[in-house]
Every structure is written in C-alpha cells, then in structure tokens.
Design a protein around this nucleic acid. Structure first.
Length: 480
RNA sequence: GGCACCGUCGCCAAGUGGUAAGGCAGAGGUCUGCAAAAUCUCUAUCGGCGGUUCGAGUCCGCCCGGUGCCUCCA
C-alpha cells in the first residue's frame, strides 16, 4: 500500500512516485502579506502542513518551499493608505503570519523565500523568455505571449478561445493578445522599483513562483500546491513561464485545497465575508481550529460555523481527557522502545491506509476515534487490576503519534484544559472560590448522606455553567 | 455564455461498482447515593426520474437545488 494523490493536472488519483527516490520537492504558494490571515489561509496552511508531516512520516526527505509575496499592487496601495513604507507593512504582516500560523502548529517549511529577494532570478527568467521570443517588451512593460505556449489552459481545463469569449479579460492596448499577462511592470512615480533591462519596474505576480521554485527545487519538481483559486490564472501562467523558459513541465503533481465557506458561500477578501484567524482565536482554541480544518477532506469545501467548530471542540476535549487518563494510570513508567509495536499495530496500519488515499484525514480521524474508544477501555481495565490493559502503552503511543502527524496532541492535557478554561471563562468570569466553597459544602452534605442538599449545591453550580465529576481522588469540576 | 464541482442519518462528514466509516445530538443499558465521565447497544438505502450492469450512493443521460473558476484571492 503506497501513497496515492489526486493530481489537478490529470484530474485523477495517481500513485505518488517522486522524481528522486526518498526525496520530495514541494512548493506551496504562500500569502501576499498586506493583511492578517483569514480562515482560508489557515485551511491551506493546515492542509499542506499535514501533507508535509505525512510525507516525512513516510520517511521522505522533504524540501518544502513556501514563499511570501511581498511586492504587489495591494501591498503598495495598503502601504500608501497607512502612510508607511511598503517594507514596514510586509514585515509587520509576515510577523503576524508567523504568530497566527504558529498557534495552528504549522511547521516551518525548509525555505521561505520572499519575492523581493529574488528579483535577479526573475529578471533572468524574463530575459530568457524574451530571447526565445516567448515574451515581449512594450515600453517598459513585459508580457508573456500566451500563443507561444501550446499547453496553455491544460491545468485549468480552459482553451484560449473560450477565455477570449469570456470577454472579462482586462483590456490593455499594450498587449498583443488580451490573454497575455505581465512578467514585468513599469513603475509609476513613487512606486517601489528595481532596475531591469527594460527599465525601472517590478515583477508581475506569477513570475516569482517560477523563478523561486526553479532556484530551490530545480526545473522540475514533485509537488506544487495552493488554493483552488490559484489554478487560474496563477498556476496556469506559472506553467507557461516555467515551461517556456526550460522546455520542461515544471511540476509532476499539482495539489489544490478547497475553500472555506461562510453560509455556503466562498469566504474571501473581495466578498468581505472573512474571519481573520486572530478573531477566531478569541473564541476558539487554535488546536480546535486545526482539527476543524482537517476533519473534512482537503479538496472539499468546508462550511465555517460556530456550531461546527463547537462540535469539534467536544471531540478534541474527549481526546485529551482520554490521553490524560491513560497517562495518569501509566504514570512515568518509562515505556521501553515501542517504535516497532506502534508502527505495526492495526490502528497505525489503518491510519496510514487512510492517509495514503490522497491524505484522507477524515477517515484517518475516524480511526483515531475508534482507537480512543479502545484506549479508554484499556485504561479502565488497567484501573481495575494491574493485569488488565496490557496494550495500553502501545495504544497511547500510537494515538499520539498519529495525532502528531496531523499536527494534534502536542500539548499536555493539563495545558489544553487550562487554555480551554481560560477561553470559556472569558465570558463566564467564574468565581473559583465560590465554586470550591459550594463543592466543599456538597461534599460535607454527601458525608451525612444529605442528598437533597448535595444535589442543590450541584444544581447551583450547574446553573453557573460548572459540571462536577466525582472521582476516587475527589470531586473535579469543569466548565460545561 | 464557457469550464469545473457539490447534493449521503436532525447536524457535521467518509465512502467512486458488491448490500452505507467516524463524530455531534438523541434513546436505552452498565457504572454512580443520584449525576458526570467512560463504556455498550440502537437510529440513514444515499436530491428526483430513467438507463447500463448479475449487482450502483459509486458509471451514463435528463431534471431539480447549491457552489466555484473564467478579474486580485488559500
């Protein structure tokens, strides 16, 4: 059983065979840094982070490149609005990106190139395209000649005639063909600019990915990813440029993640119906957001709603409680190297089978849920006698390992619970002392078997939003 | 207008030819003073119609409903 993945280029699931044995080159389109990340960015981040982690889990050495687009019209405009230099703006949002994505437990890629650090590489590629007659300079703007590339439209399933008939193409007198796109843009006064053979200007959007992927991964590499919305025109144009320059198809497998919807409608900046990640963090735990994002398959749309994310919070809480109980009963008993046992256990086999099928995290999570139930049963057995629950260490280790591949369970249960408590308590503002007092009163009543009074205390707590749990170690409480 | 995609239990969500994973919610049992937690059991024939097939949620056609891309966008 080996990895199969859906290739947007062929619209089929294919066996994954990297160009070099055991090594994977992967390029994922990052963000344009002119604003805070929204949930859609979070989804792409989580999807490709999970793919990255799983490839490493399979033993591949992954060279993972994710760029920052730090020069573009939106950046220039936003900096102008704010009255700050564009470099300051991009730096600010790059920092915010790391904060937001870091909380989502997104691992750092191998390399994170910025567009503005690669102007010479882009200029070289543009020059090569002009030399080959595939691009032309028009008064300081340089355009790619779409007619020079036969394969244009293959990725997005479009043909040039239809695109022209679409008639929504920008009218630009300077272009020989309306479909031609900018490789280099002549600068206007006051705009950021770089010297080039065609005069002062800045690169077009698409060329950065072609130039940087070539630099770090070579002319042909294994995986290129991004959101579905990038298929056209961005990735289509990227193929045209890269292929035009090198004569080779740049990418073997194209992977695109689905959108996050709000009320069944795409969330996007242009529609104005987006939530930033940091807004979400005010109400929900980052790990809950991550679990929410990977609880459906990466290619399907997901609908973002409070109800859906709250359901997920319950699930994650259950996992952490199960892990906590198992860890408590096993205590610090050093579990000898369980590597082989974990790797070969039935659950891990099922987990990998699911992930091998185009990174099916939804099915993988179903297996995690089954394993959690099994582990809870083992914990109970262990509690009721030292001879029971013999496989508990393996179950626990396997569950955590699989969770880690999905970017989950990286906190201690205590940390998670405390963070969840703080989040929930923001609205409730519970008086801990009062709660403890009520619990003490209840326990006194219970000793004298004054059940009426004991239940009254519990009811009072309940209306405050507190639920009790009587355990052999005493009474514990948590927010409903 | 062109090109894609989606419609599975009350809700979320897998499943692309062989008699529907998982989660939330719900019902019942075990445990508990009663609860809670945990655990066990139960709850769908897959938008509609027609077709292909021994057999279809899964392929084909039509219809209904919804979305995306074609313009910056994860």
């Amino acid at each position: 059983m080996s990895l199969r993945l859906y290739n947007s280029l062929t619209r089929k699931k294919e066996d994954f065979v990297p160009l070099q044995e055991n090594r994977v080159g992967m390029y994922v389109c990052g963000v344009t840094v002119y604003d805070y990340c929204h949930v859609g960015h979070a989804r792409a981040g989580a999807a490709f982070d999970t793919i990255y982690r799983y490839l490493k889990h399979l033993g591949y050495e992954v060279n993972y490149v994710r760029n920052f687009t730090d020069i573009d019209d939106k950046i220039i405009n936003r900096a102008k609005e704010k009255g700050i230099p564009w470099q300051e703006l991009t730096e600010q949002y790059i920092q915010a990106f790391y904060e937001d994505m870091g909380k989502l437990n997104i691992e750092l890629p191998t390399i994170e190139p910025k567009a503005t650090d690669h102007i010479p590489e882009m200029i070289a590629m543009i020059a090569s395209l002009i030399e080959q007659g595939k691009a032309y300079d028009k008064d300081g703007d340089v355009f790619y000649s779409v007619h020079s590339f036969d394969g244009y439209g293959q990725l997005s399933g479009k043909n040039t005639d239809d695109l022209l008939a679409g008639a929504r193409v920008e009218v630009n007198e300077d272009k020989r063909n309306p479909l031609d796109f900018a490789l280099w843009k002549k600068s206007k006064p006051g705009e950021p600019e770089w010297e080039s053979p065609w005069g002062l200007g800045r690169p077009g959007w698409h060329i950065e990915c072609s130039a940087m992927s070539k630099k770090y991964l070579g002319e042909t590499f294994d995986i290129h990813g991004g959101g579905k919305d990038l298929i056209f025109p961005h990735h289509e144009n990227e193929i045209a440029q890269s292929c035009g320059a090198s004569g080779k198809a740049p990418v073997k497998y194209w992977i695109h993640n689905g959108f996050v919807n709000i009320d069944k409608e795409k969330m996007s900046k242009s529609l104005g119906n987006f939530f930033t990640i940091r807004e979400i963090y005010k109400r929900h735990h980052p790990e809950v957001l991550r679990l929410f994002l990977i609880s459906s398959h990466y290619r399907n749309p997901i609908d973002f709603s409070e109800k859906n994310i709250e359901d997920v919070a319950k699930v994650l809480t259950r996992f952490y409680e199960g892990i906590e109980a198992a860890e408590e009963i096993l205590q610090d008993k050093e579990t000898p190297s369980l590597g082989d046992a974990v790797r070969s256990c039935t659950f891990m086999q099922k987990f990998e089978e699911a992930m091998n099928d185009d990174f099916n995290t939804a099915v993988a999570l179903a297996h995690l849920n089954e394993e959690l139930r099994k582990m809870n049963t083992l914990t109970q057995k262990k509690k009721s006698g030292p001879d029971g629950g013999g496989d508990l260490p393996i179950s626990l280790a396997a569950l955590k390992k699989a969770g880690n591949v999905l970017g989950l369970f990286y906190r201690t249960p205590k940390q998670f619970q405390s963070e969840m408590f703080q989040l929930k308590n923001r609205e409730l503002h519970l008086d801990t002392q009062k709660i403890e007092a009520l619990i003490a009163a209840r326990n006194t009543a219970r000793k004298t078997k004054d059940w009426g009074k004991a239940d009254q205390c519990r009811d009072d707590l309940n209306t405050m939003g507190v639920v009790l749990e009587d355990t052999p170690q005493g009474t514990e409480w948590k927010i409903k």
